[in-house]
């Protein structure tokens, strides 16, 4: 795969907002003038069941509808998936794995056997602290921005406003943006 296309896979559980996360990422990328694609791997659609979504960002039109088989970046929204699901499947040595966890990246490396770059962020902690609920899907985007630079935080902010302002009001929307920023600051290798 030529590097004019970045392929992302997000692992989560049904109801954790993995789909919204992939959508936010590509929407921001599109606002930056990129070609985009985001689609979930729909299974039986049960709350709590492991699921994954895909995102592609490119400067050229994206033709393929193949699922992302060799992701450049993998986001794991739910730490309990590690060990349950092969989250690093298809990843190359230069791939980037970002995990929502309180564990260290070396512990994650040990558990997954992944030799590439691993970053961790306590998105759950950030979410509970700022939003009062466990909604780690938006903060992990902050970590993604910091680590990969694939999208710009100000475009994400605008899209978060677009997605949430009408539904949950200014205060909670701002809390989501703050959570993204906090994860941006706190993500570590």
């Amino acid at each position: 795969m030529g590097k004019d296309m970045i392929e992302i896979r997000i692992h989560g559980r049904g109801g954790q907002g993995a789909k919204s996360a992939s959508q936010l990422i590509v929407e921001a990328a599109m606002d930056q003038g990129r070609q985009i694609q985001a689609f979930p791997e729909y299974g039986p659609e049960r709350t709590g069941a492991p699921m994954k979504t895909y995102a592609r960002i490119s400067d050229k039109p994206i033709e393929t509808y193949e699922p992302v088989l060799e992701p450049d970046i993998v986001l794991v929204i739910d730490p309990t998936l590690i060990g349950q699901v092969d989250v690093t499947n298809g990843m190359k040595g230069d791939g980037i794995l970002i995990v929502n966890t309180t564990e260290s990246s070396s512990e994650i490396k040990k558990k997954t056997g992944f030799t590439g770059k691993v970053y961790t962020v306590d998105a759950t902690g950030i979410s509970i602290g700022l939003l009062g609920r466990n909604l780690p899907n938006t903060p992990v985007i902050g970590a993604l921005i910091k680590v990969t630079g694939v999208i710009d935080i100000k475009y994400v902010e605008k899209r978060v406003e677009g997605m949430f302002l009408k539904k949950i009001g200014r205060e909670k929307t701002q809390a989501n943006i703050d959570a993204i920023k906090k994860a941006y600051e706190e993500v570590k290798e």
Binding site: S22, Q23, V26, E27, M30, Q35, I36, Q37, A38, F39, P40, Y42, I62, Y65
Partner: peptide, 12 residues
């Protein structure tokens, strides 16, 4: 259109 593949795929 292809169900899910196109119907649920976010594109430009």
């Amino acid at each position: 259109e292809d169900g899910f593949i196109t119907s649920h795929c976010v594109q430009n």
